[in-house]
Design a protein around this nucleic acid. Structure first.
Length: 262
DNA sequence: AACGTTTCCAACCGCTCGAAT
DNA sequence: AATTCGAGCGGTTGGAAACGT
């Protein structure tokens, strides 16, 4: 999957930085500071976009960047902070002087995550608890972690444009896409409503498209996969791509039940 | 030595947020 | 209050390097 380039069409360069470019950027910032990143490349005489310059400076050229392998202490710190903060790389980087969020993120994905997966024990239900579900903007709130989801809100999914088909399902099921999760989602996962048959009937939806969740009772975990499976199947079959979405959900979440053929 | 596969990391992208207008 | 814009963030990718056969 190749995305449309944002810089190339403007005649700007992409890809690895040449030593000359590094030199130009470094000496410009040392002289003038970075100020407005968008304006910087033009003023410095670089054929790069401001975003690219900012990234290069922050991740590589800044004088206080620490290069080289991470120490055991640094790795342990990352593991602990990740356990507390989730994928908030910038927040983790703030606790590790000289290390950048990008570097920490890379170390996590290439090294630490694998190491943890080897030693990590599954929870009593046989699936892992994912703790990386903290909304970035919630910086002033206490740490919110999301345990294994008890259920998912089809109604919410269908009506939320940001949540389309299976690729976004990780935001609800405990994938690694913490950016997509919203504090409301976390809340809804904690007090997930029971889905009864009347809820899924088209008449009910037509009649009351904004059905109040307060009228629904909280669901106990573990909930009845088979029951929900039957209810949601009927509902999904009426949606565009609903069956693909539905099947994806059940193959990911209900790993302990057998799916019948359809 | 040649080739295929995996790992690693720099750099990119789209998205969100907050400040400015 | 609504819109625009720049900065920053986290997820993802491309390609070089390392490794295995």
């Amino acid at each position: 999957m190749v995305r449309a380039p944002c810089c190339e069409k403007m005649g700007l360069k992409k890809g690895p930085w040449a030593p000359e470019e590094d030199h130009i950027l470094t000496s410009y910032i040392q002289k003038h500071g970075h100020g407005n990143w968008r304006a910087l490349p033009k003023q410095a005489g670089l054929l790069r976009c401001g975003k690219s310059c900012r990234l290069r400076w922050i991740n590589y050229l800044k004088p206080d960047i620490k290069r080289g392998n991470f120490t055991i202490e640094e790795e342990e710190t990352i593991i602990k902070l990740h356990d507390m903060l989730g994928n908030r790389w910038s927040a983790i980087a703030a606790k590790l002087p000289g290390r950048t969020d990008n570097e920490i993120k890379n170390v996590w994905h290439t090294n630490l995550k694998k190491r943890l997966l080897k030693t990590d024990q599954p929870n009593p239900n046989g699936r892992r608890i994912n703790k990386s579900k903290i909304k970035r903007s919630d910086s002033n709130s206490s740490i919110v972690t999301q345990s294994e989801p008890a259920n998912f809100n089809f109604r919410e999914m269908e009506t939320t444009s940001a949540c389309t088909a299976s690729s976004d399902f990780s935001s609800v099921t405990g994938g690694d896409n913490s950016k997509n999760i919203k504090s409301e989602d976390i809340e809804s996962l904690e007090t997930m409503p029971v889905i009864d048959e009347s809820f899924w009937s088209e008449a009910a939806i037509d009649e009351n498209p904004t059905m109040s969740s307060q009228s629904l009772t909280p669901l106990q975990y573990p909930f009845n996969y088979e029951e929900t499976f039957q209810q949601t199947h009927a509902y999904a079959s009426n949606l565009d791509d609903g069956m693909d979405f539905w099947y994806d959900i059940f193959t990911r979440t209900a790993d302990s039940i057998e799916l019948p053929e359809f």
